[in-house]
Amino acid sequence: MKELSLHILDVAKNSVKAGASLTEISISTDTDGLMTVSITDNGCGMTDEVLKRVTDPFYTTRTTRKVGLGLPLWRLAAEQTGGSFHIESSTEEGRSGTCVTAVFDTKSIDCMPMGDIVSTVVTLISGSPDKDFVFSDNDERNKRSVYLDTRQMREILGDGVSLDALEIQMWMSEYLCEQYENKTEN
């Protein structure tokens, strides 16, 4: 994978698979160019046993094959920039969930480009229209902040319109792109 946004799509899909009703993706970059990407969900969580092995490429929950590369690659992408990777999870009933945090030094030559993050967000939401997502991207270097919350969208749309409807996908894409272009305004 050549873009961080593709990794984000991949890792966030784990949250959906874990039955999360809400998944939050937050990206924040400080003035030094350190970028923290955290993906937090209220899914089923993982036991300590699983958590220990989750970045082992030869561990997977899937049944089609014996390797699982999503998280190991995400970890590598962060660590090769001199950044870090951290994962926390709880299976406790009522407050289960997982939080995957990866820190990237965007000044590093080994830091992958973010790529098309708007496509990632739209693909993620339209792939699971019955789940909620909150996306935020705050960049202190160029004073830009981008935000989208599907719960707010749902409030306006009601039950009649599914979030995977084409018109909604287009709107989300334009809505996000516009926020990315408005560097100074927000």
């Binding site: 306006i156 749309l157 009601g158 319109v161 909604i168 709107w171």
Partner: peptide, 9 residues
Amino acid sequence: LAAIKAKMQ
């Protein structure tokens, strides 16, 4: 979104 909703219905 409200306008899109109305249009879609």
